[in-house]
Design a protein around this nucleic acid. Structure first.
Length: 217
DNA sequence: GCCCAGGTGGGTA
DNA sequence: TACCCACATGGG
């Protein structure tokens, strides 16, 4: 099975079924990073509400967030849930971005593994958030793993090792060309497929583009 | 009312 | 290492 259906094959089927997803929906790389934090374990519709409120308060800017009272920031991002946790995480991210002079271009020279470590050192930025930022805000060829990715591989009987984040990420990064545009689209397609077909409960297997590959088909 | 959502960090054994 | 839990809002 694994020889007949490569990761590239799966990508092709998802792309054919759902079309290009044009992720990440944001007007700036900073907005993408904010979205990456706000969407942690949260529906995107709630993130959009919070993002609109940030925009209305002219807070889609690292320095602006840092000079804004934290209690008020909580209120602004309240619709995205976990607002006390996320306001602190957002400020941590802004502090990271502003420290060192606030010149965004300085990140361009930093090698991806090092930049990843720097992001992971920010409290509240874990592997998925760091990789989302690397891929979508910095266009680095890093594959983003999330619960949908793990679920999909599990359904396909392809979950590597213990199914840890790095094991799953390695599977994709060894099996695909290191192409940020490809990784961008692939992750987006995995998520849209998860939402529309491969749900946590009640998988909608009928008409699934991965029907013959999937053990549940 | 219940389940779920584009996770993470802290605590315990 | 491996679980368990808190964190919170909003839509189906």
């Amino acid at each position: 099975m694994s020889r007949l259906f490569s990761l590239a094959d799966i990508f092709g089927r998802l792309l054919e079924a759902y079309g290009p997803q044009h992720w990440w929906p944001a007007d700036s790389s900073f907005e993408m990073m904010v979205g990456a934090v706000l969407t942690q374990n949260t529906a995107w519709s709630n993130v959009e509400k919070a993002m609109e409120r940030l925009r209305a308060n002219r807070l889609l800017d690292a320095a602006a967030i840092l000079s804004f009272p934290e209690e008020k920031l909580c209120e602004v991002i309240r619709p995205s849930g976990y607002f006390r946790v996320k306001s602190a995480r957002l400020r941590g991210l802004c502090r990271f971005l502003v420290d060192g002079g606030g010149n965004p271009s300085r990140f361009e020279k930093v090698p991806t593994p090092e930049l990843r470590e720097q992001l992971l050192s920010v409290k509240g930025i874990g592997p998925e958030t760091a990789d989302s930022i690397l891929l979508y805000a910095f266009s680095r060829p890093v594959f983003v793993v999330d619960s949908y990715t793990v679920r999909l591989l599990d359904r396909l009987g392809r979950l590597p090792g213990k199914g840890t984040y790095s094991e799953v990420q390695d599977l994709f990064m060894r099996g695909l060309d290191p192409d940020s545009a490809l990784f961008n689209e692939y992750h987006a397609l995995v998520v849209i497929h998860g939402k529309e077909r491969c749900r946590k409960k009640n998988p909608l297997c009928e008409g699934c583009p991965l029907h013959e590959i999937c053990g549940k088909g």
